[in-house]
Structures are given as structure tokens and as C-alpha cells.
């Protein structure tokens, strides 16, 4: 479904991403982990079309992507941002936020679709006419997920969708995301610095360090400790130490 080959992104003289390649089959979930500044979010922004200054080759469903994307691309590929406090327009109600993708793509039946979307992300219909500041962080992220799903995309790009939420809400949102993936057959690319979160949702994990994808392992191998690269091992040890405090 998604193929990325030799992707490089430059910001001025800094090369943030240096020749990253990976492949995600249809219906699978691919995780990218790494420390802050390792270039993982940059990969996602290049893939989503938010950053047009990249070189290399990216394909979605067999079609090569150009720096400027068509409207159809934006219907099929959607993104959920890290910070649910910043990704919803502060002056727009949930209703407005959810109807915007439908209006842009000229999709009819706005009312029933909004109600269905709210139900799908387990939000009560009462939040429909609220503003983002009247919602909790978890509810906002659910609204962001619902918005991403409005145009019925095939691919969902997740940029640390849980890291701004507290732990109990993180689990809720993660479970919601894995339910949705099964129900809708979505393809996920998820970026996170949290190895446990990525391993929970994704079958395959790519580890990034300094703009390079140093290793790609399956989640099972990661859990079992069958990893090759020193950085993967270091991240894994750190993650275990955080999860099971001695």
C-alpha cells in the first residue's frame, strides 16, 4: 500500500532525513520510533504532503506521489496530530470541524455522517455543538480521529497520537485506533517515541536515529529481544526499565 524509497528531507543545511526506505502492506500498521529529532515526524509530514521539499520516491497504492498532492490524495490519506489541543480550530465547534472534510470533498448526507462518526469514536452526541476548549484531551483526540475518518480514507498517518494524553486516556485512544483499523481495514503509519505504544498497535517497527532508519523489526521480535542494532536495544532497555520500575 505504502512504499517509501530513499526519502531525504532537508531543512536548509541540515539533512533531517537521510535516505529512509520502508514498505507497508495494505491493512498493516507500521510504527516509526526514535528519539526527539531523529526525523520520524519529518518522514510523516513528507508522506502527508505537508512538507513538499523532499527527494526520493514515495508510492501509495502503486501511484507515485509528487510534492503537490491532488484532492483525491487528501481524501484517501489522512493524519492525526500529536497535540489535540492544537489540532482543532479553537473557533469551530466539533460539528464544523467534522463537516469541513465533507464539504471540501462534496460528500452529501452531512448530518447522519457526523452522528455516525461521533458514535464510531464513542463520543456522546452532546459534544457535537461544543467548542474544543469545552472538551477533555481524550475527547479532543477522538474528535481529531473522527475528523480524519470523515472522508473515509484508506491510510491514516498518526503523529504521536497519544503522547499528549495521560496514561489511562492513552490506552483508550490506542484501543479505539486498533478497533478502527480492524473494522475499516485501514493502513496505519504511526510515529512515536514510546516503544510500548508502537509495539501495541503495529506489526512492524522501524527504528530511527539521526535521520536514518537503522533497523526494521517485527513487534514480536522486538518483544522477544531479537534485535540487531545497538540503538534499538538501548531504546528497548529504556522502555522496559520505565515500564517495570525496580
Amino acid at each position: 500500500m505504502i512504499t517509501v524509497e530513499n526519502l531525504s528531507v532537508r531543512f536548509g543545511s541540515v539533512e533531517a532525513v537521510k535516505g529512509v526506505s520502508f514498505h507497508v502492506p495494505k491493512g498493516a500498521a507500521f510504527g516509526i520510533v526514535g528519539e526527539s529529532g531523529s526525523g520520524k515526524s519529518t518522514v510523516l509530514r513528507a508522506l502527508s504532503g505537508l512538507n513538499p521539499d523532499w527527494t526520493g520516491r514515495m508510492e501509495i497504492d502503486g501511484t507515485a506521489l509528487s510534492p503537490h498532492r491532488s484532492k483525491d490524495f487528501f481524501r484517501r490519506v489522512q493524519m492525526v496530530f500529536q497535540d489535540p489541543y492544537g489540532s482543532l480550530h479553537p473557533r469551530q465547534t466539533v460539528d464544523r470541524a467534522l463537516s469541513e472534510p465533507l464539504e471540501v470533498h462534496g460528500i452529501a448526507d452531512i448530518e447522519p455522517r457526523i452522528l455516525r462518526a461521533l458514535a464510531e469514536v464513542a463520543l456522546p452526541p452532546a459534544v457535537r455543538f461544543r467548542y474544543p476548549h469545552q472538551l477533555s484531551g481524550g475527547q479532543r483526540q477522538r474528535v481529531a480521529v473522527a475528523r480524519a475518518l470523515m472522508s473515509e480514507p484508506d491510510v491514516l498517518l498518526l503523529d504521536e497520537p497519544t503522547s499528549a494524553l495521560d496514561v489511562s486516556v492513552q490506552a483508550e485512544v490506542l484501543n479505539l485506533l486498533s478497533d478502527l483499523q480492524v473494522r475499516r481495514g485501514l493502513t496505519y503509519v504511526m510515529v512515536s517515541h514510546n516503544l510500548a505504544v508502537v509495539a501495541h498497535l503495529c506489526g512492524t517497527v522501524g527504528v530511527m536515529q539521526g535521520g536514518v532508519m537503522v533497523e526494521t523489526v517485527s513487534a514480536d521480535d522486538l518483544r522477544a529481544g531479537n534485535v540487531m542494532h545497538a540503538h534499538t536495544r538501548a531504546l528497548r532497555t529504556l522502555c522496559m526499565a520505565l515500564e517495570e520500575p525496580a
Binding site: S70, F74, R75, H89, P90, H105
Partner: peptide, 20 residues
Amino acid sequence: DYIAAVRLTGASPWRIILRH
């Protein structure tokens, strides 16, 4: 991010300016 999210819906720049 909220303007980036609108750009990702595929809205035209004029629509983004006018409505967002």
C-alpha cells in the same frame, strides 16, 4: 496544527483563508 489539518482535507488556499 489546525490549519495543517485543514490543508490535509484538500481545501483550497482561498477556502482556508476565508473560513479558517
